[in-house]
Amino acid sequence: MDALTFQGKCAVAFQRVPTPQLKEPTDAIVCIELCGLCGSDLHPYHCREQGLDAGTVMGHEFVGRVVQAGAAVQRFLPGDRVMSPFTACCGACFYCRRGLTARCERSQLFGWVEGGAGLHGAQAQYVRVPMADGTLAHLPADVSDEEGLLLGDIFSTGYFCAENAGIAALAAAAGGTAAGDGAVADGDARGPVVAVVGCGPVGCLAVLAARELGAARVLAIDSVPGRLELAQRFGAEPINREQQDPLAAVRAATGGRGADAVLEVVGSPSALRAAYDLVRPGGTISSAGCHTEPSFPFSPVDLYNKNVTLKSGRCSARHYMSKLLPLVQSKKYDVADVISHRLPLSEGVEAYRLFDGRAPGCTKVVMRPWSEAAAADGVEA
């Protein structure tokens, strides 16, 4: 099959690799109809963590159709249209039963093979899905491939980040107005004021989630005009950090206090430090960015002296997929507006170059592994 594989630091290749096979009776093989390029794919791409094995199939965002189901798979049959979270999960352990599917006792991350062990990814024509009954979800006919792919990772992650910040509780305590209404002129909004650090695709969907959960105002901070424009379309007030001081802007919007909650979705020390500076005393920082540094850019004393709550962690995407599916089906929001580039998988090497280089207008890249003719025939190209 065709796939994008890791070849070393900042190097991927489009090449033929063996098609995955069932290994366990709980596995399924999915023919991928759409896969995505995620910001967290850039961590192994840059070898920011321990490196992947050369030849690892990259990627963890996908939708497709089941083509094989192991003998123990009960919920899915060949031909079923499915979506998947970025980590496989059993659906039955202590953590899965509590909605913390990201910490499943048997969790595996798609696109991570190290020392010969792990799970190949989804930037390919086929993928093996372990624990298919717990991992996969049916993709209804009224949900597009793009919407299903976003549910499996970045929409769930953006919503998780906003929910983790306690925005709904803050809105209820303030007796706030419905999401999307304005704020009082003196900076005392009728509901929480939320700052979002980073306006990539996760940040833009975090903006949407914050509004949905009851934020009165959402201030979105970035330096890329196109991303700020997209955040504004999702309901944010854009702050270009190269043209104005974000701290001054946030304080001006909050009577000098700082944001009630800050959503950090970048995964860099400077972004997390900015979140600390922007949050008001007694506020909450919700960090969904993937951090690989060995220490925080602030100290425990800093948190103590400001009475700040810091929440972090990997999104339990399988849990949020089910939770957010009705919202996507309602068509209240055009979540697929975050997608800027739709390419064939054969152009995946260039896709990585564009995405990594933050090319103008590049926010979210999705790729189709099959030619239109091959997809129509249902056979491998």
Rank of each mutant, 00 (worst) to 15 (best):
L4Y: 05
F6A: 05
A11Q: 13
A11P: 00
A13S: 14
D27R: 06
A28F: 05
A28H: 13
L37E: 03
G39S: 00
L42W: 13
Y45I: 00
H46N: 07
C47I: 03
E49Y: 04
A54Y: 01
A69G: 10
A72Y: 07
Q74I: 03
D80E: 12
T87N: 10
G91I: 06
A92R: 15
C96M: 12
R97C: 06
C104M: 02
A117P: 00
L119F: 08
D142M: 06
V143N: 12
E147V: 05
D153K: 06
F155D: 00
G166W: 08
I167Q: 07
A168L: 04
A172L: 14
A174H: 14
D186H: 14
A195F: 14
A209H: 04
A210T: 08
R211D: 01
A220F: 09
R227F: 01
Q232S: 13
Q232H: 11
F234R: 02
F234W: 05
A236P: 04
E237P: 00
R241S: 12
E242K: 15
Q243K: 14
R251Y: 04
R251A: 06
A253H: 01
T254L: 08
A261P: 03
G267K: 04
A271D: 07
A271G: 11
A274R: 12
L278I: 03
V279L: 09
G283K: 15
P294F: 11
N307A: 13
S312V: 11
G313L: 03
K323H: 15
A336W: 03
R342P: 03
E347H: 08
F355H: 13
K364G: 02
V366E: 08
G378N: 01
A381G: 15
